[in-house]
Nucleic acid binder design. Structure first.
Lengths: 112, 112
DNA sequence: CGGTATCCTCAGTGATACTG
DNA sequence: CAGTATCACTGAGGATACCG
């Protein structure tokens, strides 16, 4: 809470353009690559792969490959991934409450 | 909490490379431009200006100019800014608890 | 002191094509 | 299906210089 370096590191994870949107889609259980691709609107195949690799590397998701044809790969939040998701919940609640105010503030600011 | 679009918008604010670090430095009261420049390590003058403008536009900080020479400009969190800061607190706590695990997970992943 | 104005670079991202 | 490989581009951000 006191160390700005930690703040910087969390930003490296949650500040990522796609990471939290992917984590979000995994909150109700494992999902396959293509499911994620469909549900995270606007993400490219490449960025989904990159994002999932990073999350896997950080111990936030697991990657499970079923050696069948065609391939079947599913991703799931680790216990740590679930705690991360919970830690971001207040922020989502905040956004629901305040985003309209922000839009209003912006409009007011731009009218000058 | 359900709308992915909102998640995207919050990311636009908290996901910014510098915004949360600046907000953090304002948590104990108003700070002057140069104070912020010194305390947010590594930020350029340009990015501090840009970041503060955005935060002001979004209604998260106020900008107060004292028309003296030399100029004196101080920034302060708005009430909404303070609620934002509170909403990010769980994330900071999470980081203190889990960042070591993440480092370990990365090291393990890279050793392959 | 607290900015703006410019220029420039490069990391992040998308598009596309190919593959086990 | 779930990637990898390449290329090309854009814009976030640094460096520098100047200003009220």
């Amino acid at each position: 809470m006191e160390d700005p370096c930690k703040a910087r590191q969390v930003l490296g994870i949650v500040g990522d353009k796609w990471a939290m949107l992917v984590v979000r889609m995994l909150k109700d259980g494992p999902r396959r690559f293509t499911e994620l691709k469909r549900s995270v609107e606007g993400i490219s195949q490449r960025m989904l792969t990159v994002t999932l690799r990073d999350l896997e590397r950080d111990g936030i998701v697991t990657r499970t490959v079923l050696a069948v044809m065609p391939p079947h790969v599913s991703y799931e939040l680790t216990p740590m991934g679930r705690t991360l998701r919970e830690a971001t919940a207040p922020l989502l609640e905040w956004s629901i409450e305040h985003l309209p105010h922000i839009d209003a503030a912006r409009a007011a600011y731009d009218n000058r």
